[in-house]
Simulated scan of single mutants.
Amino acid sequence: MPLWTIHHTPGIFTGDDKNQLASHITDHYEKVGLPRFYVVTLFQETRPEDFYVGGEPAPAGIRIAIDHIARRNPDQETRRRTAQWIRGMLQPHIERHTGLHWEFHVDETSRDLWMINGIVPPPEGSDAEKNWAQQNATSPY
């Protein structure tokens, strides 16, 4: 499961921006074989007086924490491409904001500590995972 938690100050994302970005994120993961329902995107609006960078309030900022569980980047080159993809996807949403501080990081979490609806997700690329992707829902396997 990719979990994107997007902390942002007010005025950065409209409702439509959120919908477009969450859809774009989900589309990418679907293209690499993940069921769409694996992808969770959370937008957390944070007041400027609660958003600090370097010990100072940041009037306009975005901080994104991304957890990858369903798949891992096997090497440095793949990790670099993933970071470039994330940057490229975010840029249309952030380039219109002057003075914006933005950053992201990606954690890769063990699949051993993951369940959806109380079910351990099927192995990567298995027929059961393909079935989940086709149904866009969990099912016993």
Score class of each variant (00 low, 15 high):
residue 49 E to P: 10
residue 89 M to R: 08
residue 70 A to L: 09
residue 99 G to I: 13
residue 117 N to Q: 15
residue 129 E to H: 06
residue 59 P to M: 02
residue 124 E to F: 08
residue 64 I to P: 00
residue 5 T to D: 04
residue 3 L to D: 03
residue 133 A to N: 11
residue 122 P to S: 05
residue 105 H to I: 01
residue 18 K to P: 12
residue 82 T to H: 13
residue 68 H to C: 13
residue 138 T to M: 14
residue 137 A to N: 14
residue 94 I to N: 00
residue 38 Y to R: 03
residue 94 I to V: 04
residue 14 T to S: 15
residue 7 H to R: 09
residue 93 H to K: 06
residue 96 R to L: 09
residue 92 P to V: 09
residue 8 H to G: 01
residue 129 E to Q: 11
residue 116 I to C: 03
residue 140 P to C: 05
residue 113 L to T: 14
residue 41 T to E: 02
residue 107 D to Y: 02
residue 114 W to G: 06
residue 50 D to P: 02
residue 9 T to M: 01
residue 109 T to H: 11
residue 43 F to M: 08
residue 42 L to T: 07
residue 103 E to W: 00
residue 87 R to I: 00
residue 47 R to T: 15
residue 14 T to I: 07
residue 9 T to E: 01
residue 27 D to N: 13
residue 42 L to A: 07
residue 62 I to W: 00
residue 49 E to A: 14
residue 35 P to K: 05
residue 20 Q to F: 09
residue 87 R to D: 04
residue 4 W to H: 03
residue 115 M to I: 13
residue 82 T to N: 04
residue 47 R to Q: 15
residue 88 G to Y: 10
residue 80 R to K: 10
residue 33 G to K: 12
residue 53 V to P: 00
residue 12 I to F: 01
residue 117 N to F: 10
residue 140 P to S: 12
residue 71 R to H: 12
residue 64 I to V: 04
residue 81 R to K: 12
residue 124 E to Y: 13
residue 119 I to Y: 06
residue 129 E to P: 07
residue 112 D to Y: 10
residue 85 W to A: 05
residue 61 G to S: 03
residue 9 T to N: 04
residue 78 T to F: 14
residue 77 E to Y: 08
residue 121 P to A: 05
residue 123 P to S: 15
residue 6 I to Y: 09
residue 127 D to R: 12
residue 93 H to M: 02
residue 75 D to P: 06
residue 41 T to L: 05
residue 65 A to S: 15
residue 63 R to V: 02
residue 15 G to K: 11
residue 6 I to M: 03
residue 17 D to V: 14
residue 97 H to M: 03
residue 16 D to A: 11
residue 40 V to N: 08
residue 132 W to Q: 05
residue 46 T to M: 02
residue 29 Y to K: 01
residue 134 Q to G: 02
residue 110 S to Q: 12
residue 130 K to I: 08
residue 80 R to E: 14
residue 44 Q to V: 12
residue 6 I to K: 05
residue 12 I to H: 01
residue 19 N to S: 15
residue 85 W to M: 10
residue 10 P to R: 05
residue 26 T to R: 12
residue 16 D to F: 13
residue 62 I to T: 01
residue 35 P to I: 08
residue 59 P to K: 03
residue 5 T to P: 06
residue 126 S to A: 05
residue 120 V to A: 08
residue 130 K to W: 06
residue 106 V to H: 04
residue 121 P to L: 14
residue 129 E to K: 06
residue 87 R to C: 06
residue 24 H to E: 11
residue 139 S to G: 07
residue 13 F to V: 03
residue 55 G to Y: 05
residue 122 P to A: 14
residue 127 D to W: 11
residue 131 N to I: 13
residue 34 L to Q: 05
residue 83 A to Y: 07
residue 4 W to P: 03
residue 133 A to D: 10
residue 120 V to K: 06
residue 46 T to V: 14
residue 9 T to V: 01
residue 30 E to W: 12
residue 88 G to P: 07
residue 5 T to M: 06
residue 84 Q to A: 12
residue 23 S to G: 12
residue 53 V to R: 00
residue 122 P to Q: 02
residue 66 I to L: 11
residue 25 I to E: 02
residue 109 T to G: 06
residue 131 N to S: 14
residue 92 P to L: 10
residue 53 V to G: 00
residue 27 D to W: 07
